[in-house]
Design a binder for these strands. Structure first.
Length: 557
RNA sequence: GCCCCCGUAGCUCAGUGGAUAGAGCAGCGGCCUUCUAAUCCGCUUGUCGUAGGUUCGAUUCCUACCGGGGGCACCA
């Protein structure tokens, strides 16, 4: 019996209570849907396999006390075939214990579902565009961007697991004055001049200059200065694109679409967007500039979209870009941004509304807090211009892809993340990823040894899984689909990480208590065979969970 | 001044209305001739920032304040 079936039964019982009350002449309004009748897995195992607090919520409309309602519902639940016992506790909690066979059946269900266990249908048929990282092509990917790479990719996997048709998208800001600064910086390095005042000063700038010279088909020295700068711009930006893509690929993150801001300006998409908004009456001119009246939609000020010198302001790219995504037919557009960009949210949502769409539905902006770098406990300020940056490579070199991704995706994006550079290299076994991976490797090791010892899955007798550590393990395995669904709806992949850590803990404890392989001369029994199912089911859940995080599930460690 | 995030054990953090608030790390003490000791078991620590409010019930929701971080351009 699944929790869904159990809560349906509970809902039906509640309806009966209401009906009985109405028949006896009382005015009873029970505004309840099946989804209101939730079951929780109690923290305290003594409280049973499942628990419901519904009696406290419906006591008032039913004109009775919570404990009385709970007692009536308990009686009905007890009559269900898979329910072993029901008790009423505290102010009116209903604690339900299932028959071992009913709970244990899950092991087989998981093994047979395989990689599909935990997937759902929340976003079946929904097209979602997920834009993340989108770091400017003026330098290597640094730690700020890497967090979104890990979290964004994992979120994409989670949304897919719930049926969404997900497009991972990277927006390259290859237009505007920052690119000019980048080009002038590389040119200066080539000419042996000092870094321009507003330019980028990192050591990588010199490397790029060398690479551009090697790549350019011709003699750069013979060109005029503005022609040289153009060469360094176009080839230099291309080099950065290539490097960024390669590094992300090495981190297990690949995008379906790399979108170039430049293309919006070239294709006229920006102008089309402005025209559209002008027709809607949201455009005005002032001080020689062209503005979008975002205050109509709650922004704190109106925004310049074409500057008085004729250059498009940054937001004009966003207008064209949003319109483009819209025309590509996405039902939901998600953008992940760092906290230093949270000021965009108001104007972006205003823009969405100006186009006639619904903010928060057609466009959702996920703000993640910054990564703090520490060195020996002291904060290190990252700056591309000063050249003090810590890159994706530095992280991977220090701890590897798995531990790196895991440590970034493990905490909520709402929290700032501290990464101590000195600790990265040394205390890697502090990373819980190894705890989880070890648990998975252990399931595989047990499965291998089981074959050698003559234990196979030829029998499945779930009623034999009666040990406390077995019902606890089964209880947590059962939660996996709900965890995935919640991670998808809340856009919080860290929940997957926390969950598989919990699974690993229950597994290790079970391993310590319950043997899959007979000890000594003991004959192979159905209990051993059934435990092998549970072992394999746990391995499957750990594998599925790690897969959603983009972390490998090793066969042995 | 306005906006966003955070404040929970010594440290790093989980916990979007439920029962006695949890985990890892750190500390102390136990288990390896038997499926992997990167495991497991035991001990120890809390004004859930403060004050009100809503609720049968608040770490969770609302308000104010305090503390930390980030943001408030015709820059991107």
């Amino acid at each position: 019996m699944t929790p869904a079936e159990l809560s349906e039964s509970l809902f039906a019982l509640i309806q009966q209570l209401g009906d009985r009350r109405r028949q006896s002449g009382s005015e009873t309004v029970l505004d309840l849907t099946p989804s209101d009748v939730t079951l929780e897995r109690p923290r305290n195992r003594d409280h049973g396999d499942w628990s419901s607090s519904i009696a406290m919520k419906i006591a008032k409309p039913l004109g009775s006390t919570p404990r009385d309602i709970a007692a009536q519902l308990a009686e009905g639940l007890e009559a269900l075939p898979d329910v072993a016992s029901v008790e009423v506790a505290g102010p009116g909690f209903i604690n339900i214990r299932l028959e071992a066979a009913a709970a244990g059946a899950l092991a087989r269900t998981i093994v047979e579902a395989g990689p599909l266990y935990g997937t759902g249908h929340i976003y079946d048929g929904i097209r979602i565009n997920l834009e993340f990282v989108s770091a400017n092509p003026t330098g290597p990917i640094h730690m700020g961007g890497v967090r979104w790479a890990a979290v964004g990719d994992s979120l994409a996997r989670v949304l897919k697991a719930e049926g969404a048709d997900v497009t991972r998208e990277y927006y390259f800001n290859d237009h505007g004055s920052q690119i000019d600064r980048f080009a002038r910086s590389v040119l200066a390095a080539y000419l042996g001049e000092s870094t321009p005042e507003d330019g980028y000063g990192g050591a990588y700038i010199g490397d790029i200059a060398d690479q551009v010279v090697a790549k350019f088909d011709g003699e750069i020295g013979s060109l005029a200065r503005d022609e040289q700068q153009e060469v360094f711009r176009s080839i230099g930006v291309d080099l950065m694109f290539t490097e960024i893509k390669e590094k992300l690929h090495g981190f297990g993150v690949d995008f379906d679409v790399y979108f170039h801001e430049d293309s919006l300006h070239e294709s006229g998409a920006v102008n089309r967007a402005i025209e559209r908004l002008r027709e809607q009456g949201h455009i005005f001119e002032s001080d020689g500039a062209i503005w979008l009246r975002t205050t109509t939609f709650g922004d704190d000020r109106d925004r310049v979209i074409i500057r008085s010198n004729g250059e498009p302001a940054y937001i004009s790219g966003d207008l064209g870009y949003y319109l483009d995504k819209r025309e590509r037919g996405f039902d939901q557009n998600l953008i992940m941004l760092g906290a230093d960009h949270h000021g965009y949210v108001g104007r972006m949502m205003a823009m969405v509304e100006a186009f006639g769409d619904v903010p928060g539905v057609n466009l959702q902006i996920l703000i993640g807090q910054m990564v703090n770098l520490l060195k020996g406990g002291e904060p290190v300020r990252m700056s591309k211009r000063a050249g003090t940056i810590v890159t994706l490579d530095d992280l991977v070199d220090a701890v590897g892809v798995d531990a790196g991704r895991y440590s970034l995706v493990r905490s909520s994006s709402d929290s700032q993340l501290d990464i101590d550079l000195d600790l990265l290299g040394k205390r890697t076994n502090e990373n819980p990823v190894f705890y989880v991976q070890y648990a998975h490797a252990r399931t595989q090791s047990v499965a291998r040894n089981a074959v050698a010892a003559g234990v196979d899955r030829s029998a499945f007798a779930p009623e034999l899984l009666t040990h406390d550590s077995e019902s606890a393990l089964l209880g947590v395995l059962q939660e996996y689909p709900r965890v995935v669904a919640q991670a998808a709806e809340l856009r919080e992949p860290h929940r997957i990480a926390r969950y598989i850590e919990e699974v690993a803990g229950y597994y290790h404890r079970w391993y310590d208590n319950c043997r899959v392989i007979p000890l000594g001369d003991e004959p192979v029994s159905d209990l051993h065979r059934t435990r092998l199912w549970l072992n394999d089911a746990t391995g499957q859940v750990l594998r599925n969970g790690l897969g959603l995080l983009g972390v490998s599930a090793p066969e042995r460690m």
